[in-house]
Amino acid sequence: MTNASPTVPATGPIAPDAPPSWRAVRRRVLPGFGLTLGFTLAYLGLIILLPLAATVVKTLELSWSDFWSAVTAPRVLASYKLTFGASALAALFNVPCGLVLAWVLVRYDFPGRRLIDGLVDLPFALPTAVAGIALTGLFAKNGWFGSLLDPLGISVAYTPIGVWVALTFIGLPFVVRTVQPILEELEPELEEAAATLGATRLQTIRRVVVPALIPSVLTGFALAFARAIGEYGSVVFISGNMPMKTEITPLLIITKLEQYDYAGATALAVVMLIVSFVLLLLIQLVQRWFTAARQR
């Protein structure tokens, strides 16, 4: 009967480090495992799986050969290259920049720190179309940046570089916000200890700081990458949407919808889903491997 009373801790102390098991779950101070798990499954099913299933079902209206020719048309292939390539480059670029930003925000106290902290979230909050129009305004030939870059022969707006700029902008907060809490828990004492034990500055960073941050950096990268792949609103303004050159896959999906080709649109969506899912899974595996290697 002792286990039946959920508010009374069962015999023995609660061991948070014990390997998870049904027994450990049943001994939680707060009840409700069944209820919350049920809710979680129902919610995920309703909000995520159901729309995805509908996407797949709609795609099944196509025969295999129609599906294959829809998702491998030359224009579509060019758009995958741009979408996934620019997204990966943008997320990669955000890793070092986001790390430095998070480091500055956590480790130093200076006037305006809170303001900068708030600014980091701006790309989250700004409607993406606003971001796209603002960036295009800046980087067009008559904009502030564009007018400086143009004499050097560099055009950003209406080129793949513009796509990358927009994706970098929207991806930044993901890296900063995932690394920040880990950095906050990483005590400076550890670095001091490393230093007193004779480690050089570089060694301290390489052996102490970086390994602790890698899992969160990978998560941040994955989030920024995934967000960039699906981005539409900001990119269509700055990319110029030229076939074979600056068309992103989400634009082609919209193009198909404009022709009432619902099945063709969902076919592209299914391809993007599968590729994104596989990439995210790979990143998660790498992250696991790092965490395991570190604990060894």
Binding site: I133, T136, G137, A140, G143, A157, V236, F237, N241, L251
Partner: peptide
């Protein structure tokens, strides 16, 4: 540049 709508093109021409 191929904007997705007529207003977008007007902006590209007039503002950009």
């Amino acid at each position: 540049v191929l904007d997705s709508g007529a207003r977008g093109s007007t902006i590209t021409f007039a503002e950009r």
